[in-house]
């Protein structure tokens, strides 16, 4: 609505119904302000509860907060990055399949099916990962360490239970795939059809048309979708808590039984039995996680906004 409309409307409506309008507008505004208050609350309460951990004496928290959170940050990033590396190419391909390869009539139904993947609760992914995928991964891990052991990622010795960072990364990849796919699909569908038809008219094959018209147009969409997926993977708790066998080691070795924990999973595992300063330390680590995901998400929004400025689609 433009400002002139609002002004003229207010002038006209003022004498007639002041009370109803004021109550309604006030409650709508109040709800909006309530959200801001809640968010300010989130930040300040977490800060208050986390503060004791920062100032804790050496005797209560050996090594200090940084030594406690450091390996967890490493594990969180490692798992999320594996998920991102696996999921992004697959998600782009799935989005392309839905938008440009599948028959038009099927594509709506197919995107519902992919969205179903996003609807599965994380506890179910946790059970599935620990029960089905982890045992399945053992032969693969053995093969990887036998044949590709010279790569530090697969140095081994392979875990016999399969509760490894690799499995966590794969499960996280499955969880973020639908998010990236949804964003990429939307952007691919917005490709100006004139660009596509022009490419085809010049004799391009379907793949050449996609490479010349669709992918350049959708690049920022892919990036921001991947960022949103990364944000989700960083904060994922239960799947990691149920699958990963944690030793606290800081290592890039993805298939051994020595794994770094992640912030979110560590909170879920430790918090129910925690008391005293441990509670504050865990809340402080949660705050760190919040800041990391916030940065990632804001980067994603920034990329989307920038695309809006430059593209002629809107």
């Amino acid at each position: 609505m433009t400002t002139t409309e609002v002004k003229s409307e207010q002038k006209a409506a003022k004498p007639v119904t002041q009370l109803g309008d004021r109550i309604f507008a006030g409650s709508a505004k109040g709800a909006g302000i309530a959200i801001l208050v809640v968010l300010a609350g989130v930040a300040s309460f977490l800060l208050i509860e986390a503060f004791p951990a920062v100032t804790a004496p050496e005797s209560e928290l050996p090594g200090g907060l940084v030594a406690y959170v450091g390996p967890l940050i490493f594990g969180t990033l490692l798992g999320a990055v594996i998920a991102l590396v696996v999921a992004t190419p697959a998600a782009v391909a799935v989005a392309l399949f839905i938008s440009h390869y599948a028959p038009r009539r099927l594509s709506q139904g197919l995107s519902y099916i992919v969205d179903l993947l996003a609807a599965v609760p994380s506890i179910v992914y946790g059970l599935w990962g620990a029960w089905t995928l982890a045992p399945l991964s053992v032969p693969l891990s053995n093969w990887l360490t036998d044949n590709l052991g010279w790569i530090p990622l697969f140095a081994g010795p392979a875990s016999t239970t399969g509760r490894t960072m690799m499995v966590v990364g794969l499960v996280l990849a499955v969880m973020i795939l639908p998010i990236i796919t949804a964003v990429a699909r939307e952007v691919f569908l917005q490709t100006p059809s004139l660009h596509e038809e022009a490419a085809l008219a010049l004799g391009a094959t379907r793949w050449e048309m996609i490479r010349m018209a669709v992918l350049p147009f959708g690049r920022s969409g892919i990036i921001s979708g991947a960022m949103l997926g990364l944000g989700r993977a960083l904060g994922e708790t239960m799947a990691v808590a149920m699958i990963l066998s944690v030793s606290g080691a800081v290592t890039f070795n993805l298939i051994s039984s020595e794994n770094p924990g992640t912030i979110a999973a560590n909170i879920a595992l430790q918090f129910p039995e925690a008391s005293g300063i441990t509670v504050n330390v865990l809340i402080a680590s949660g705050l760190v996680l919040f800041v990391i995901t916030l940065l990632v998400n804001m980067l994603a929004r920034y990329i989307v906004e920038r695309r809006r400025d430059f593209s002629g689609a809107n």
């Binding site: 996680l289 919040f290 916030l294 998400n297």
Partner: peptide, 30 residues
């Protein structure tokens, strides 16, 4: 105000679920 709300709703979308749990816990602990 509306731009602030839009921005912070975006921020809220990205809150990891466990952090939301910690927030509620911290609130009622206080």
């Amino acid at each position: 105000l509306s731009r602030a709300i839009t921005f912070f709703v975006d921020v809220m979308t990205g809150i990891p679920s466990i952090v939301a749990g910690l927030f509620a816990y911290a609130l009622f602990t206080l």
